[in-house]
Design a protein around this nucleic acid. Structure first.
Length: 413
DNA sequence: TCTGGGGTCCTAGGACCC
DNA sequence: TCTGGGGTCCTAGGACCC
């Protein structure tokens, strides 16, 4: 029998902003951007939620519901810093910690009773310690399974602790709406509603075979979840650190849709640089490059190509992204552009010796560029195409967008 | 309501190989 | 070659999470 804690920070982004500006406390606060910007709410304070504002809602809608709210741009580095502080605090409590996202974590507390006492007491001790060390509130769910603990931390909000006694998992879940199960979103909820299933208990009573037939592999996992088991889908049962990433992407939504080829190309350039930089940070090479295009009517297309060798070189990824763009862009105004890489390897793989030499020199130049960016900021260094975008001027262009035999140092501003 | 940005996982069809 | 069946890789799209 395991004891699993799920720790979930309360209104995390808003609470972090309050640490930096205590005058925000108790007021309706919306983190995500200006009220007239294209974008959605990242986090809303409890005072703002009273007006119906919630995360993922368009900022303009939030403004209509609550015009007196204070709208803030997010500060990702602040959130990361606070998240690391929370992580350290959790590790000071017990060694088996899995950060599931920036503001939530699972702890395997099995066998810690001699050190921390029974689960409910231990959870309160942890709750107190997080408050002391970070000045932030959280909620903690305790049970025998990750899924049940996650649902119970949600029920415990705000600033509470909730323990589901062993053996009571299914009884705890049964009266809840199916939507409360992580992995059941709008679409699945609606599909289940059509079958007359609204509560988790309705789901638990169904035959496994029926759910598998209706919803495939995921239906079977759903049956297990409804009874409080971790098996399948989004829940790997073991509590452990997150593995290396499986994909890396950057995308950008324009303030106004644009059909200007120069702007689009320089945006691709910048996105490719950002993606490759992250590849180098993780020590990864990617074989597949994917372009994402979204037009004014929100129609969205992805086009991918797999290279015969893996890359993390800005110009190579850009050349592929541009190729995909030039072949697929209809010429209509674009709302969003994205560059995505996946199919990772931990080495470049097949490559001729000639290419190898040029690639090594590029890697060194790019590492140097990364260090400059660390020191002087993200805009200090860029590819020619990205620079042109930044300064709105024409710059000599490498037509193929390829490294070439003589390695050129990336342009510095 | 006029819809971000970063991810994970799943499905399904077609190519290709044995 | 009219034909089969499995396995793997690639590509596109979509549901979902924070």
């Amino acid at each position: 029998m395991r004891t699993i804690f799920h720790v979930d920070m309360d209104a995390f982004f808003v609470s972090v902003e309050e640490l930096f500006d205590p005058s925000l406390k108790g007021k309706p606060v919306v983190v995500g951007g200006r009220p007239d910007a294209r974008g959605v709410v990242s986090a809303a304070s409890y005072a703002a939620r009273k007006f119906g504002v919630h995360s993922a809602m368009p900022l303009r809608t939030a403004y209509k519901l609550c015009p007196q709210a204070i709208f803030l741009d997010g500060h990702p580095h602040r959130y990361r810093e606070c998240s690391e502080k929370v992580h350290e605090t959790l590790l000071s409590f017990t060694p088996t910690v899995e950060m599931a996202s920036i503001d939530e974590a699972y702890l395997d507390m099995t066998g810690t009773e001699r050190l921390h006492g029974p689960p409910f007491l231990a959870a309160h001790k942890l709750h107190e310690r997080i408050r002391e060390r970070t000045n932030l509130n959280c909620s903690i769910g305790v049970s025998t399974a990750k899924l049940v603990s996650k649902v119970s931390s949600d029920q415990a909000k705000p600033n509470g602790v909730l323990w589901v006694l062993p053996g009571n998992e299914a009884r705890f879940l049964a009266p809840l709406e199916v939507r409360r199960i992580p992995g059941v979103g709008k679409v699945t909820e609606e599909n289940l509603r059509k079958l007359g299933i609204r509560k988790v208990g309705d789901l638990a009573r169904l035959d496994d075979g029926f759910l598998e037939e209706r919803f495939g592999k995921w239906g079977l996992a759903l049956a297990g979840k409804s009874r409080g088991q971790d098996a399948g889908g989004w829940f790997d049962s073991a509590v452990g650190g997150r593995a290396v990433p499986k994909s890396i992407s950057h995308e950008h939504t324009f303030g106004n849709d644009t059909a200007d080829a120069g702007t689009l190309h320089s945006t691709l350039s910048r996105l490719s640089e950002m993606v490759c930089r992250r590849l180098r940070e993780h020590g990864l090479w990617a074989r597949t490059v994917q372009l994402k295009l979204r037009y004014s009517d929100f129609s969205t297309f992805t086009r991918a190509h797999t290279l015969d060798h893996a890359s993390r070189i800005d110009t190579e990824v850009l050349a592929e992204a541009r190729n995909l763009f030039d072949r697929n862009w209809t010429g209509k105004p674009v709302r969003l552009l994205g560059v995505h890489v996946g199919n990772f390897t931990e080495a470049e793989g097949q490559m001729s010796l000639l290419d190898q030499g040029s690639s090594d020199r590029w890697s060194k130049a790019l590492d140097a560029a990364d260090r400059l960016r660390d020191k002087y900021g993200e805009s200090a260094v860029g590819l020619a195409g990205g620079l042109r975008g930044r300064f709105q001027e024409r710059v000599h262009e490498n037509p193929a967008g390829l490294p070439g035999k003589r390695p050129r140092k990336p342009a510095t501003s």
